[in-house]
Every structure is written in C-alpha cells, then in structure tokens.
Amino acid sequence: MKRHLISAADLTRDDAVLILDTAEEMARVADRPIKKLPTLRGRTICNLFFEDSTRTRISFEAAEKRLSADVINFAAKGSSVSKGESLKDTAQTLEAMGVDAVVIRHGASGAPYRLANSGWIDAPVINAGDGTHQHPTQALLDAFTMRRRLVGRDAGLGKDLAGRRITIVGDVLHSRVARSNVDLLHTLGAEVTLVAPPTLVPVGVETWPCEVSYSLDEVLPKSDAVMMLRVQRERMNAAFFPTEREYSRRYGLDAARMARMPEHAIVMHPGPMVRGMEITAEVADSDRCTVVEQVANGVSVRMAVLYLLLGGSEPAVTAPSRTEETK
C-alpha cells in the first residue's frame, strides 16, 4: 500500500482484497458490546472538510473513534478558510498541531493529491472525496458490500469480484463515486457497465475499463448489482436532460425495472437518495436495496483503511478477551 489513499486506481488487487478482508475483521468489532479497539490510541486524525458532507464525516469519525484515535473535526465553513486562508496554510497549521493523518474532503478535483504531493505536509492523506475526481473509500465500501452479498461474508475472504457484472447508472460526468468504482471494480475483476444519457457521460470515457450504454432496460437483466447515482435537480437547468420526469422514465429504477434484474441482483446507492428521481421509494425500501448496509460497511472499511495506513504491523484485531481487559 502507498502512504496515502488518493485514488482507487492507486490500489492493486492485493491491496484492495487486504482492505476488504481487514474490514471484515473490523466489522466483527461492531458486533461486540464494546465497539472499540486500542489500535490508534494516542494518534490524532483530522477530518478536514471543505465541503459539507455530514454522512462521510460521521462515518470517518466513527471509524477513527472505534480505533481509539483522537479526532479533530475541521469544517471550512466559518473558519479561517472562508476568510481567504489557503489550503496549504490550513494544512500546515494542522500539522504543526501534531496531526498524524489528514482525511480531506474538498470541492476541487485534485486537492488531496496536491496536499499529499506538494511537500506542504508529511502526514498521510486520505481522500474523502474531491470534486468530480475520486472517492476511494466509497468504492471500497461498495466493493465490500458487493462481495458480502454476491460472494458471501466468509466465502468472500481473500476473494475479489471476478466476473461479476456491475451496472452504474446516472450522472457519471459529475460523479467521483463512478470514477472510483470503475477503477476499483476493474482492479477486482468485475465487468462494469455505465448507463447514462449521453450528456452525462464524459468525453474521453472511451479509455475507461468499462462499457457504456444509453439503455438501462437492455443492461438490467445482465446485472449482478445495479448502483444508482444521485442526480442533482440543478443539472436539468444546464440542459443535461429535458425534465426530471423524462429522466426518471428513462433512467430511474422503479419496481417494474427491478423485476427485470436477476433474482440475486442487488440495488445500491451511495446516498443521499433523491426518491422519485433516480429511485422510487418502493425500490429504495426493498430487501434488495443495500443502502443502509453500505452505511454500516463504510465504517468498517474506513477502519480498515486507517488501520492499514497508520496502524503499522500490529494485528488489527486482538482477541476479544484482551479487548475486554483493556476497557
């Protein structure tokens, strides 16, 4: 593993499988009465959020706290950043306070890469979503969810997603989730198909390791998992599609469409969902939809990433009896 986690494309197959396997160990911690490991005791992690994202920030915070790290939350709104302080100065200020790792969410694509590679700070950088570029821990938690559901919780250990057919539907152009998932799923051996109106597929997609289709109905019967992306209503005003209703009719997932998926296939969504737009309430609330599981899995996966980047060589999870002793 590299020192930082900036892009899902930075992970080899073995890195990714190691993270998923470690996340399974971490998940067991959540089943214990005391959901805490001493692994990162005495380490300080800063969640540096330049963009509002309560759910991702809380997920990281939960992961950090379960590993016993000290957590500093830095939201750029109302801070010195809004008064014109640069990313560089903010990061250097935090490092001067002794931060051991920075989890960064930023609206500008490439901001985490700059932070990790400009010599501004030494601490490991974990990308919690940058602009329309990458969101690697989201891709990891999605892969974790797929492996559990499609391969099995125990059967999946050590395995990748070879041969699984994954369909990603929606605003690919503006989606860091789509970019991260294409990279990671390809690394894990899955076959990815992107489905979107042509306006929401980037020019240059032809080099991505995936297929592109404009027809959801053609792809659904051949999908083991269908991931619906959020479509922001503002896109309509920029002529990406004519109306919300037309988008829903052509690219939304409703019960009738879900019925055309293979029986074992699952429906995923990174959240937040826009019910009635890309997904109907009926589908969102069905047993096949993994959206709530994805949230739970997010904490396990982020624990695994933090442990592997910061924890060093100690075993991730000590025997339950010892954990009891440390409480």
């Binding site: 694509s109 490439g110 940058d130 980037p202 020019v203 240059g204 080099t207």
Partner: peptide, 9 residues
C-alpha cells in the same frame, strides 16, 4: 478529453 475525464476536471 481522455485526461479530463479521468481527473474530473
């Protein structure tokens, strides 16, 4: 083009 699609710029 190809690079902007990857970089999300």
């Amino acid at each position: 083009g190809i690079v902007s699609a990857e970089l999300g710029l």
